[in-house]
Amino acid sequence: MIQSPEVFVRSTMAREGERGATWLAELPAIVDELLGRWECVPDGEVMHGGVGLIVPVLRMDGEPAVLKVSFPHPGNRYEPDALTEWGGRGAVLLHERDDQQFAMLLERAQTPTLAQVGTGDEVATVAGQISRRLATPAPPHLPRLQEQADTWEEQLRQEAAELPHVLSTYIVSAALATVHELARDQPGTLVHGDLNARNILKADREPWLAVDPKGWAGDPASDCGTLLKSRSVVLVEEGELRTAIRRTLDIFTEASGLDRERARRWAQLSAVQAAFSGRRRGFRRARQGAELDRLVALVDELAVILTAPD
Results as ranks from 00 to 15, higher is better:
Asp223Glu: 08
Glu240Gln: 15
Arg242Tyr: 10
Arg231Pro: 03
Glu254Gln: 04
Pro213Arg: 10
Thr226Ser: 15
Asp219Gly: 07
Glu254Gly: 02
Asp250Thr: 07
Leu227Lys: 09
Asp219Cys: 07
Glu240Arg: 15
Thr248Gln: 06
Gly218Ile: 06
Thr253Trp: 01
Trp216His: 11
Thr243Phe: 07
Leu258His: 00
Leu258Ala: 00
Asp250Tyr: 06
Ile245Gly: 02
Cys224Asp: 05
Leu241Asn: 09
Val211Asp: 07
Leu235Asp: 11
Leu228Thr: 13
Gly215Ser: 06
Leu241Pro: 04
Ala221Cys: 06
Thr243Met: 10
Leu227Gln: 11
Glu238Phe: 05
Arg231Gly: 08
Pro213Val: 08
Lys214Glu: 12
Thr243Ala: 13
Lys229Cys: 15
Gly239Arg: 11
Leu227Ile: 15
Gly215Ala: 05
Thr243His: 10
Asp223His: 10
Glu254Pro: 01
Ile245Tyr: 01
Val234Gln: 14
Glu238Ser: 08
Leu241Phe: 06
Val211Arg: 05
Leu235Tyr: 13
Ser232Thr: 15
Val233Asp: 11
Ser230Arg: 13
Trp216Ala: 04
Ser256Cys: 04
Ser222Pro: 12
Thr226Ala: 15
Cys224Arg: 03
Thr248Lys: 01
Ala221Asp: 03
Lys214Pro: 08
Val211Trp: 04
Gly257Ser: 00
Gly225Leu: 07
Arg231Thr: 11
Asp219Ile: 02
Ala255Gln: 07
Leu258Tyr: 00
Ser230His: 13
Glu238Asn: 06
Ser232His: 14
Ala244His: 06
Arg247Glu: 09
Leu249Cys: 07
Ala221Val: 02
Thr243Leu: 11
Asp223Tyr: 06
Ala244Phe: 02
Arg247Pro: 04
Cys224Glu: 05
Ser230Cys: 11
Ala244Val: 01
Leu228Val: 14
Pro220Glu: 12
Leu227Tyr: 13
Asp219His: 05
Asp250Ser: 08
Glu254His: 03
Glu254Val: 04
Glu238Lys: 10
Ile251Ser: 03
Lys229Gln: 15
Val236Gln: 09
Lys229Pro: 12
Lys229Asp: 13
Ala255Pro: 05
Gly239Lys: 11
Gly218Asp: 12
Asp223Val: 09
Ser232Met: 14
Thr253Gly: 03
Ser230Leu: 13
Pro220Ile: 12
Trp216Met: 11
Leu235Lys: 14
Leu249Ser: 05
Ile251Tyr: 02
Leu241Lys: 08
Thr226Val: 15
Leu228Tyr: 12
